[in-house]
Design a binder for these strands. Structure first.
Lengths: 112, 112
DNA sequence: TTTTATACCTAAAAATCTTAGGTATGTTTG
DNA sequence: CAAACATACCTAAGATTTTTAGGTATAAAA
């Protein structure tokens, strides 16, 4: 990812969510989709992307399917049922995280 | 920090912001304040806290002042002018990050 | 034909955090 | 009073994640 260090720990959330929306995607496509949907704010680097995808697959959250396009091979990823569940968890965790951060950054003064 | 990996990269933002609110604080106090203000969601660990404070000090964003309490020494931290500026930057970066994440997690369908 | 785009990948290095300590004083509790 | 807990600082090894910087190969565009 690019721009700032805040993105650490959010890649998997982003990927799981993207796959929940799109059904199936391949890595190169994800790079472009993330750039586009974040209005250019986030730039997935391949060095972060592929290891993350491989870990998600190894954890049983994604399955893959290879598709030949001429002589090239595309590797499509898709959520497993466990992956769909993990996505929900991750997204709520992120929402919870944002709520807590907002408490910290804009604390309510004590009553009285 | 505790609970999830989303906090990576936010510690400095939190610390700078805390000091902007409180004027001056010492490390141990920050641990408790973060726990309290996040309603228990975030637990600053000392192994993350002290190195972060030292880096902020080394970068000229914080100054320190030692205060003797009986035989113990407390090390108070305070923002420098550069630190106050860095806080503003960090907080807007965080807001921007959240906006971009929301675009990604809840994309608007294309017009038409 | 050279460059750019598509499409996959890895490995070394940097950065950050967790875990697991260490040191020492002060206070509470059995 | 002794043991436990709280206050208060700190570091270092290990784990994890990401950046940087490549490598390989096909297809399209300039």
């Amino acid at each position: 990812m690019k721009t700032n260090e805040l993105l650490k720990g959010t890649i998997k959330t982003i990927l799981l969510n993207l796959l929940a929306e799109q059904g199936r995607m391949y890595g190169y496509e994800m790079v472009q989709k993330v750039r586009q949907q974040s209005a250019g704010a986030f730039e997935l680097t391949e060095g972060a992307l592929y290891p993350a995808l491989h870990k998600l697959e190894a954890s049983g959250l994604l399955t893959t399917e290879k598709v030949h396009i001429g002589k090239r091979v595309r590797k499509y990823y898709r959520l497993t049922p466990a992956g769909a569940k993990a996505r929900e968890t991750k997204v709520s965790e992120f929402a919870e995280f944002v709520r807590s951060m907002q408490l910290l950054l804009n604390p309510k003064p004590a009553a009285g």
